[in-house]
């Protein structure tokens, strides 16, 4: 697609368009867009209660997507935390899969299975990648969790 200015549209334009506004997962988990996709210069830890999972991206886009869930405002027992982690992993997989499927006309990208990263207090952004972040609210069991996605990607040369 070309703008009237003749300038080709950028990756972040397509990615922003592909991210779903809302997802209903098994009628009891809802992901609702919270902040739009923004270019980010660094990834900082929001709270000490953030857990991350990583998906490797391959195809026309290369790199990975880190997904974080913050449980700061919720006092969770270890069994509840395990259950939430399982819900979060699959919700992030569905969110990312749906996003990349919507990108199909411009970029054909596949994802790995989710890999647990635990807590990431610092994370280096590699210079050769573009970095974008966006956030969602994950609503589960009448509670709202803050979820953010950080894409570190580049177009295949």
């Amino acid at each position: 697609m070309i703008l009237e200015t003749g300038k080709p549209l950028s990756l972040d334009f397509y990615l922003r368009k592909a991210l779903p506004e809302e997802l209903n997962i098994f009628n009891h988990i809802y992901l609702v867009s919270d902040t739009p996709l923004l270019k980010s210069n660094k990834i900082v830890e929001k709270t000490k209660y953030e857990n991350a999972i990583k998906f490797i991206l391959q195809g026309d886009l290369q790199g990975h997507c880190l997904c974080f869930i913050d449980t700061y405002e919720h006092k969770l027992e270890s069994t509840q935390l395990n259950e939430l982690q399982s819900v979060f992993k699959e919700s992030a997989n569905i969110l990312l899969g749906n996003t990349l499927s919507a990108l199909e006309k411009n970029y054909l990208v596949s994802i790995s299975h989710p890999m647990e990263q635990g807590r990431l207090s610092s994370y280096k952004i590699e210079d050769s990648f573009d970095s974008y972040s966006t956030s969602y609210k994950l609503i589960y069991n009448l509670k709202e969790y803050y979820v953010r996605l950080v894409f570190q990607i580049r177009e295949k040369r």
Binding site: L23, N24, I25, F26, N27, N93, I94, L95, L96, G97, N98, L100, S101, E104, L108, S110, I111
Partner: peptide, 28 residues
């Protein structure tokens, strides 16, 4: 079933012998 549902993935599933393909999130 898969969260990714690009045409090539659906075709690969059918070529592998799947009778149907459903994208996640699955509706009952």
């Amino acid at each position: 079933i898969s969260s990714l549902a690009q045409e090539n993935i659906v075709m690969e599933a059918i070529s592998a012998g799947a009778s149907d393909f459903i994208q996640k999130p699955i509706k009952q």
